[in-house]
Design a protein around this nucleic acid. Sequence first.
DNA 1: CGTCCTTGTGCAATCGTTTGCGCAATCCAG
DNA 2: CTGGATTGCGCAAACGATTGCACAAGGACG
Lengths: 342, 342
Amino acid sequence: MKDEPIAQRARVRPVTLATVAHHAQVHVSTASRALSDNPAGIGADTVRRVRELAAVLGYRRDVGAAGLRTGSSRLIGVLVPRLTDLVLASIYESIDAAAGAAGYGTVVANTLDDPDHRRVRLDAMLSRRIDGVVIGDSHIGDTAAHELRARGVPYVLVMRKLEGHLSVTTDDYRGGQLAAEHLLELGHHRVGVIAGDQLASTGRERTLGFRRAFESAGYPLPDPYVVESAFSTPSGLLAGSELMRLPDPPTAIFAVHDLLALGAMGAIRDAGKRVGEDVGLIGYNDLDLAATLPVPLTSVRSDLGAMGSLSVDALLGQFRGETPSSVLLPPELVVRATTQHR
Amino acid sequence: MKDEPIAQRARVRPVTLATVAHHAQVHVSTASRALSDNPAGIGADTVRRVRELAAVLGYRRDVGAAGLRTGSSRLIGVLVPRLTDLVLASIYESIDAAAGAAGYGTVVANTLDDPDHRRVRLDAMLSRRIDGVVIGDSHIGDTAAHELRARGVPYVLVMRKLEGHLSVTTDDYRGGQLAAEHLLELGHHRVGVIAGDQLASTGRERTLGFRRAFESAGYPLPDPYVVESAFSTPSGLLAGSELMRLPDPPTAIFAVHDLLALGAMGAIRDAGKRVGEDVGLIGYNDLDLAATLPVPLTSVRSDLGAMGSLSVDALLGQFRGETPSSVLLPPELVVRATTQHR
DNA sequence: CGTCCTTGTGCAATCGTTTGCGCAATCCAG
DNA sequence: CTGGATTGCGCAAACGATTGCACAAGGACG
C-alpha cells in the first residue's frame, strides 16, 4: 500500500489503440486500419472483432494525435465580431452543423471588431493548426485574409465581403434597393438611414443601394439623414434619436440590421410617434423576433443558414484542391406592419 | 523542372521547434525550455536569443503536439442548448474570455436540448481530449454530468443546476419571488406565467418561486394560468396568446425569459391590449434589448458575465486539484415601463 | 590542488496515431 | 506438387513537443 502511487484525479481512461489491439490480439497497426473509415487489407472478421472490442472498452480515437501524424487537425476556425449578435450566431450555428456533418469540428472567436484582439485569437487558432478559416468579421483595411493567403491557409469570407477574396454573401446593394423601392412606393420622400459600420461591406452596401435608389427617384438623402452606428440595439436607439431630433424628422427609417431597428423603435416611441403609423421602419436580416414584435417589423431577409453552409462547402472544396468561386445570394423583402400605413 | 514535385497547395510553414533550435545553434530541448513560460536551467541570453529567433521565423508552438506529451489539450468544452439564445451566447462569450485569459481555448456545441445530438457532440469533444466541460444545457434526467464524473473529466454546470453536481447559477427561486412581490405590490391578483421548459431548473425554479409567493399572499395560481414553453420569441407569442384567450385573462404576466416576454408583447397587442398600461409584463435576464424596447421591459437581472467567468474559475480550480463549491448568485429586479401603471 | 556544488545544455524516451514496406500464409492453376 | 498471385498482418518510422536524467564546465571552498 505504501508504494502505491497517489492516484490524485486519475483520468480513468488510458484506453488507447494499444489497449484495444492488445485485447483483440492483433498488432496496433492492424487495429488502426480496422478502425479506419474504409479498412483496406484487413479481414472482415478481424475488423468486426476489433470494432466490437473498441466499443466495449470505450475507445475513442485521439484526434489530436492522429492530426499530428496526418497533418490535418480536422478543425475549422471561425472569426465573428460577436456571438451575441444574433445574425452571426445564426451563421455560426449553420457553419458548425455543416462542418460537423463533414467530420470537422469548429472553434469560434469573438474579435469584437478589434484588430489586436483578432490577431491574438487568430494566432491561437493557427497554433492549433486549423485546416481553414471562415472569416465573418472582415473590415476594410483588414489584414487577416491577406495573412492567411500568405501562409497558404484556406479561408473564405462570409456575410461581409472584401475585394479580391473568396466570399459567400448576400447581395447587400440589392437589399438596400429593395428597401428603398418599397418606401418610395409608399410615397416616402424624406427618409433616414441607420447605416451601421461603414467599414463593413454590409453596412456600406446596404446604405449605398438605398441611397442610390432614392437619388434615382429624385429624392437624394442629405448627409444628416444617414447616421453611422455599431450593430446593436443600444446603438440603434442612439442613432434613431439623432434622426428624430432633426428639424424635419424622416417619415420612414431604414436600419441595416434588425437589432438597430429594434433600438429605433424605442427612439420613435420616445419622440412621441407611433411605429408604423407615424414613422415607417425597415430592418435587415429578418431575425425570428422581427415577426413577433409588438409591431411586426418589415425586414430584408437574407438566408443566414445558406450562407453558413455554403461557406463551409467553399472551404471543403479547397481542402480537396478545388478553387471554388464566390457566391452572392439574393435578398428578399418581407413586408409587415411597420410599413403598412400611408 | 520535370522532376520537381508538384507543390499543390503547399502549407508554407514547416517551422517547428527543430527549425528554431537549428538556427539558434542549440538542442531542441533547450529551445523548448527557453520558450516555456518560466525557463528553468537556461541561460538568460540563450533564452533571449531563442525567443528572438522564434519570433523572426514565425514559429508557433503546435498546441496539439504539446498536448500529446503533456496530457492536457488546454481546451475546454462548452455545452449550450443554442447559441442563438442570447442568454447562452452571453455566457459563452464570458466563458471564452475567461478561458482565453487563462491560456485555454474553448469549443462550443449546440445540443438543441436533444439527447442524441448531445451525445454525438460530447463524444467529439472527448475525442479531442478536452480538459474539462462547462455544461450549460442540463436537464432533469440528463446523463452527461454523470458520465463525465464516471470518466473523471472535470465539469461544472452553469445557468441550470442539477442536484448533486457542482454548479454556478443565480438564485432562480428568489428571482421568481422578486417578480411576484413586485406584481403583488402593484395590486395584481390574477396573473399568468410563461414558464419555459420545466425540465430545466431555470424554468422550474423561477416558476416555483413565483407561484409560492402568490400562494403565500393568498392568491394561488390556477394551472391554466401557468403555461409551459420553449425559450424563444415565437414560443412566447404562442404561450402569451393562450393566456390572453382565457375567459378571465391575467392582468399581468411573468415570462421566465426576456425573449418569451418579447413574444408575449406581440400576443398582448394581438389581444387588443396595451403592454404596461392594460397588462403588466416582467421578463428575466435583463438582456440589452430589454431596456431599449418600444415599451422598456421590467426584468429580473442575472449577472451572465459573472456566471461565465465563475464557471471557468471552478474548472481551473479542479485542474489544480482543488474541489470548488457551488455558487449561487443573487438576482435583482429592474423595474421599467411594462410594470409602471396601475 | 582536489572535491563538491551549481548552472547550463544535450540525449533519448515518450505521448497516440498513421502508413510505407515487406514478410508469411493462403489459394488456385498448370 | 510446385510456383506465382493475392491477401492479411506486423514492424518501425514518422509527426512535434516535453522532460527526467546525465554530463560538462566553472566557481567556491577546504
